[in-house]
């Protein structure tokens, strides 16, 4: 297998600005197909901004970027934005369910993209909920308000909602930051299972989580990519001393 083919996303010399404030500095990296790329780093490292650049969500914050981002070799600015955001899903730190039923949450994105028959919609929703390990808990209450779910269930609903869109890449922005250890374990298990089908980018403040789940890990500091390598290497003998300091908690 050649490396070129395995490449899912490539980022070249990406800069991102909020007004005068530059939050990503000359970042270049690659994301391989069907891997989990962990992204770690202290606050203001630009981890979330990186995700928001990849699906062009930064545009609603009126931020500016320069540099090249390619998805399957195609410039993301040549892809219709709705397609791009369907293909590159984003899970937020705090689970946000839209007002309405569980089913409505699941079907919202699907209905935006195409006309869809009721039976097909039901199937997609069921499959996505199963894939997110939520089906057993909600199959009898699909038409109840989504806000009645617990925090962990809501986060898995958010994951299922993204899965229903049949994405290629799933980006997670600290998906477990507000969750208890059991919910966290469930989400990590889900992720490891889904890795067979999807590419993941996992931003996390919990370095142990990256160590547990990620194939490769990138360390960001103040908008710069310090180091990206196999997770084992990053966590055992990183090239840059700053990475080592951060992982060992000797940092700011």
């Amino acid at each position: 297998m050649n490396r070129q083919k395995m490449m899912k996303i490539s980022v070249e010399q990406l800069n991102l600005f909020y007004g005068q404030n530059q939050v990503l500095k000359n970042v270049s990296l690659e994301v391989y197909e069907k891997e989990i790329l962990g992204v770690i780093g202290p606050a203001n490292a630009g981890k979330s901004s990186l995700l928001r650049a990849l699906n062009r969500l930064y545009e609603i914050d009126y931020a500016r970027i320069s540099g090249k981002i390619r998805l399957d070799g195609e410039d993301i600015f040549d892809i219709p934005i709705n397609d791009l955001r369907r293909r590159v899903g984003l899970i937020f730190a705090t689970p946000v369910v839209l007002p309405g039923t569980i089913f409505k949450n699941m079907s919202y994105g699907l209905k935006l993209h195409r006309k869809i028959k009721k039976q097909e919609l039901n199937d997609i929703v069921a499959d996505a909920l199963k894939a997110a390990n939520l089906w057993e808990e909600v199959k009898d209450r699909l038409y109840e308000s989504a806000s009645t779910l617990s925090g962990g269930q809501q986060q898995r609903l958010c994951i299922a909602r993204t899965l229903a869109m049949n994405p290629e890449v799933i980006m997670m922005d600290e998906p477990c930051s507000g969750l208890d250890p059991i919910s966290t374990a469930k989400i990590e298990a889900t992720m490891l299972e889904l890795k067979k089908t999807y590419t993941f980018i996992l931003v996390t403040n919990n370095t142990k989580q990256a160590a547990r789940t990620a194939d490769r890990t990138a360390f960001f500091l103040a908008g710069e990519l310090i180091e990206i390598n196999k997770t084992e290497k990053i966590f055992t003998k990183p090239d840059d001393p700053r990475t080592d300091d951060y992982i060992r908690g000797r940092f700011g």
Binding site: I60, N82, R85, V96, L98, P99, Y108, L112
Partner: peptide
């Protein structure tokens, strides 16, 4: 209407009008 509702709608591929019609106005 929380900004996060809009972010969700956009990140699921919704356009500005979809977001206004289906998320912002009903809420």
């Amino acid at each position: 209407v929380p900004l996060s509702y809009r972010e969700i709608s956009y990140s699921l591929g919704g356009g500005k009008l979809d977001t206004i019609w289906k998320v912002v106005l009903p809420t």
